[in-house]
Amino acid sequence: MTAYDAIVLAGGAAERLGGADKPGVLVGGRSLLDRVLAACAGAGTTVVVGGRRPTGRPVTWTREVPAGGGPLAALGAGVRHTTAEHVLVLSADLPFLGASTVGALLAAAGEDSREGALCTDPGGRDQPLVAVYRAEPLRRELALVATEHGSLAGLPLRLLTAELDLARVEAGPLDSFDCDTWEDIATARARIREHGTVLDEWITAVKNELGIDLDVDTGLLLDLARDAAHGVARPAAPLTTFLVGYAAAKASSGDAPEAVADAVAEAARKAAALALRWEEEAGATKSEADPQ
């Protein structure tokens, strides 16, 4: 993947939220800012433009001048702290932005003749705060706009994007979903609890809370829990999965995350086989007691 730095714009007055600290609003137990930071975890340097607040990983903090000067001024402040050839620019209110969309933007921006790439939402509207820009033309255009207008404060982003040759990447309906109102927040909170997404959202939140950077086969663990509950007893499900995690941690202490994931898978396979043996044994005992 193309090396990049990231700038996350986390300022603004959030007037439609009654002045609430929008980047700090929780969706699925994680702040909006942390959800965005997770999508750009591959950045070499991540700069957050806005007031300091707790984050799930280290970032570089800066502020636009004057404070509240708008997204163009914030972008100008953030880019001073970046060194990579490509700069990912994101707003801090994108609860469903995924790493795959970041990768698509980086790939499109990496084309030889392009000066960057931005997302377009399902309505075809450009999203300049879900974008990747080449650093050199970005700095050039920011300097030209500042010279022409005296400063970047209060200016619209289109003054920048109109002068750059940008590729367009179609975003999914959720990737560009931003939270401007409490209704948007309520929609996001309801969306993560839907049947098809709630487990992934919950596991991600738990790993974030516990400081675990590990991808495991959740399907394998769910199958194990089912087998233990069905073949042994219902309380066996959570206890068995706990013991699998403990065994994996003990067997792979100090190893890379990939080795830990392999250890989880191996322990889960052993425990699942044991649960099936218990079930078979119970069935055999019943048939022996009632040989009809």
Rank of each mutant, 00 (worst) to 15 (best):
R57T: 05
G231R: 12
L90P: 02
L155G: 12
G196L: 10
H86E: 09
P137T: 00
P54A: 15
A92D: 09
E115V: 01
G116Y: 02
W61A: 12
L274V: 14
R80W: 01
A272W: 09
L164A: 09
V48I: 14
V216N: 01
V130L: 13
R80I: 01
L118G: 09
A247F: 03
T60V: 15
A39I: 02
G245P: 06
Q127E: 15
G150F: 09
R193G: 15
K286H: 13
R52Q: 14
L90G: 08
W202H: 15
A146E: 12
A43V: 13
A3R: 04
L9Q: 06
A3E: 10
P54E: 14
R226F: 04
P23C: 07
A233S: 12
T55K: 13
L138C: 03
A131N: 06
R140P: 04
G11H: 07
P173H: 05
A233I: 04
M1L: 05
G11Q: 07
H149L: 09
L118Q: 11
D175Y: 03
G254P: 13
A10R: 07
A104E: 10
A38F: 05
A3D: 15
S252G: 14
T83P: 05
E148Q: 14
V232Y: 06
E209T: 12
Q292H: 11
L174I: 07
A247L: 14
T82G: 04
A43C: 13
E183Y: 01
G18T: 07
R53E: 05
A271I: 06
L17W: 01
G28A: 08
V145P: 11
D121P: 00
W182L: 15
A272I: 06
E163V: 07
R234N: 12
A265N: 00
D217H: 00
A188I: 06
R30Y: 01
A171T: 07
A271S: 12
V206Y: 00
S253D: 12
D290W: 08
P66M: 02
A38D: 14
P257F: 00
G231L: 11
A38L: 12
D178W: 13
V27I: 06
G28H: 04
T240Y: 04
K286C: 08
R125I: 09
G69W: 00
A99Q: 11
A167M: 15
A38S: 08
Y133P: 10
H86R: 12
A273D: 12
R114N: 11
E64I: 04
D213V: 03
A84M: 02
